[in-house]
Design a protein around this nucleic acid. Sequence first.
DNA 1: GATTAATGTGTTATTATGACGCAATGTAAT
DNA 2: ATTACATTGCGTCATAATAACACATTAATC
Lengths: 251, 251
Amino acid sequence: MLKDIIDNSENYQPGLSIDCVIFGFHDNQLKVLLIKVERANKWSLPGGFIPVDQDIDTAAITVLNSRTGVEGVFLRQFATFGKVNRNHQHFDKKALEYFQIEEEKAKWLTRRFVTIGYYALVDFSKILPNLLGRNEVVEWIDHKEVPELILDHREILDKALDTLRIELNLMPIGYNLLPEKFTIPELQKLYETILDKKLDRRNFLRKITNIGILTKLDEKKSNVAHKAPNLYSFDKEKYDEVLKNGLNQGW
Amino acid sequence: MLKDIIDNSENYQPGLSIDCVIFGFHDNQLKVLLIKVERANKWSLPGGFIPVDQDIDTAAITVLNSRTGVEGVFLRQFATFGKVNRNHQHFDKKALEYFQIEEEKAKWLTRRFVTIGYYALVDFSKILPNLLGRNEVVEWIDHKEVPELILDHREILDKALDTLRIELNLMPIGYNLLPEKFTIPELQKLYETILDKKLDRRNFLRKITNIGILTKLDEKKSNVAHKAPNLYSFDKEKYDEVLKNGLNQGW
DNA sequence: GATTAATGTGTTATTATGACGCAATGTAAT
DNA sequence: ATTACATTGCGTCATAATAACACATTAATC
């Protein structure tokens, strides 16, 4: 894998990579898709290199698809990271031996890499990270329990979440994170989880319905304790319209 | 200049550049600092390359300083641009001859360059773009009259302005764009110019003063037609506090 | 000194927000 | 079957923010 890239390094943008923060929502938790890096005993954001014949956005989609298998999801560039020492000694002698990379070609890898951060919102239920046939451990991890990450991936993850929190005020969220049919309490939990903040049930309902992107279905959620909540779906047309025009006008 | 960089290309991050959208405010107009590219008869955003021993943020500051001479201004990364063909044929044979760059070394230049966009807000009155001793034409141009730009610089400029418009709702603006003492109508014109939208005088005053970042001075603007408006300054301490915490909470 | 074109201050109606109350519903315990 | 209970659905009220507008004040100009 990595060796293939190194051996064809002229086909890839040098010193530049992509890292994706892939968010999902499950069990009322905000999950992040992470990859176990065995040799370092740490975890990593799914990332990749940029073929010289691909737009960076396209390369980001490729990374996302190769890890999640889903297409057409919400994917947005949020920041680029380029501290001088960000990948200093990341590929040390041990690692190069592990990947069977010759010393001469290793130079391509060991230089400072600038990485472009993208975050994605995906439907947890449609993704089976462990069934991708790759020889690696990919897992959904609760964002509150993210273990130590390699390099500056923690910083990248934090920045992605910060961006998501800000964008929550500028656009609707949920279409990409929830199944087709969902309940208002579920949507509220999603907002509360992202914002890490309790919201008032009744005020939330009013505010979210006033946006005009929800369709109330003639159907209730089954197999639930206590009163069965109504099911809703997004009105994709209106949703996209609001996505385009934004929510808060401010000034 | 360029030749120096090419001759020492190993000291620069390959295929990666920085472009700065430098905003100023003068005569009730939002100005952008642009550079005339004689050989192409087009204009360009001030940009530069990234030394391998500099953080990208540091490199951006360097670009900004070298063009404006000012330090400590507002500078923020807003997006990274990397379409495959974005600099296709930008350095053609003619250009390479012009810069006296050998064909062999030109390869470093002619590959696809990904560029990291930064925007800056600077005090127009403190900057004298033409007195920097460089052998190039640098000019403040009204953003509404920006001529044809090289490459995708138009796209970069537009994205910068979009970002600025959005951030106007999230943070206070003005400290970096206005002189130390200013009037409320001036500040309002700044907002109106950035947003390209008329605002109500009285509502603007109320809203802007409620933020609590302004200090009303015991001084009026002199030499003006009609009633002399009061002068204000920013309360830097409170300004920075609001900058950090943000304006609109939204949810 | 009147005119003029701005600025400074205030009012009102409307809308949005935050903090609650209470009835309705479906599951689980008695 | 009846009751308890947790959760949903719908509504109220006080307060704050916003939009639209009226009028007095000021300083240069005629």
